[in-house]
Simulated scan of single mutants.
Amino acid sequence: MTNAGQSGYEARQLIRAGRHTGQTSGMAPGFVQANLAIIPAAQANDFLRFCVLNPKPCPLIGHSEPGDWRLPALGRDIDIRTDLPSYRVWRDGKIATETDDITSYWRDDLVAFLLGCSFSFEAPLLEAGLTLHHHELGTDVPVYRTSIPTAQAGPFHGPMVVSMRSFKPADAIRAVQITSRMPGVHGAPVHIGLPESIGIQDLDRPDYGSPVPVPAGELPVFWACGITPQAVVEAAGLEFCITHTPAHMLVTDLRIADLSVL
């Protein structure tokens, strides 16, 4: 599932041309991937405040000007309307359709927000010798709604969403150490073990992504996830917005090392 040596620009060109239509985990290792939330300007300031109040699930790495589909600070020749493999169009808090091109839905009042994604720290975990079971299985990472509330901003409120990867205890400690240096892509986990204590009743039934069994002797480790805005949009009943389809990200030209802290 990895594409060693591939750049963010090369990944986007494949996606724009329709030559890559699946999930983006493993694409362009070392480059930052981003979750997407496109919000009408009337609610954009509230969404920006929501990101500031909830930096773990919503680490903001960039946003556009109203009506502008370009994001030059994040990568060469980005067109946010075409450069993700799949989008969700939402109306009144419900998914109206999924599509690989949102050009026909674009409006002059739309603001694109890009949030760091945990796919970005998978390459450093692999480089440290840790095993990622969803890579071995060729599936999406499992993602769950939790009972952890987010801080409300205007109409935006709802549960935190988390992604899960499991490790042996010593490897879980190493994963915490590695990801804690990357706050721009969710940083350290928000929870380890005991999924029921954060409202997850059955690990075999994720709300998004694919089920990935936790082997005996391993601990489930949960990171805040950039799908949180989709749960929030649903809770708020937002009249219109566009997001990425889970696991189908924007691959940027930013390097994960540029967002890391010592």
Rank of each mutant, 00 (worst) to 15 (best):
Y208W: 11
P211G: 09
S197H: 07
E196L: 10
R181C: 11
L125C: 06
A235L: 06
G67H: 04
E136A: 13
I173M: 12
P59H: 12
Y9G: 14
P169G: 02
K56Y: 00
D109L: 06
F119S: 13
I173K: 10
T243K: 04
K168S: 01
G67W: 07
Q152Y: 01
A153C: 05
T97W: 05
M1F: 10
R107Y: 01
A216D: 15
V233Y: 04
P29E: 05
L132H: 04
T24F: 10
L53K: 13
V32E: 02
I200Q: 09
G62A: 05
Y208K: 01
D79T: 03
G22C: 07
G62T: 07
H135M: 06
T179Q: 05
T150V: 08
R174T: 09
S166Y: 02
D83M: 11
N54Y: 02
G26F: 03
L238D: 01
P195G: 05
I227A: 12
G116F: 08
S147C: 09
D108S: 14
S118L: 02
C58T: 12
F121S: 03
P85R: 11
P246S: 10
R255T: 00
G75Y: 12
V32N: 02
P189T: 03
L71P: 07
F167S: 01
P211V: 06
H186P: 01
G237K: 00
H244I: 04
G226S: 06
V161K: 08
V52L: 14
D140K: 15
Q230C: 14
V214K: 02
T131C: 01
V190E: 04
T21Q: 14
A235V: 03
T243W: 06
F156R: 11
R16K: 15
I80Q: 08
F31A: 04
G226H: 07
I15H: 10
A257I: 08
D108P: 02
I227T: 13
P189Y: 00
R107C: 09
D171H: 04
T228C: 07
I38Y: 07
A11R: 11
C241A: 15
H191Y: 13
C58K: 01
S180A: 14
M27N: 07
S118W: 08
I78L: 08
T228H: 08
A17T: 10
D202H: 07
F222S: 03
A257Q: 15
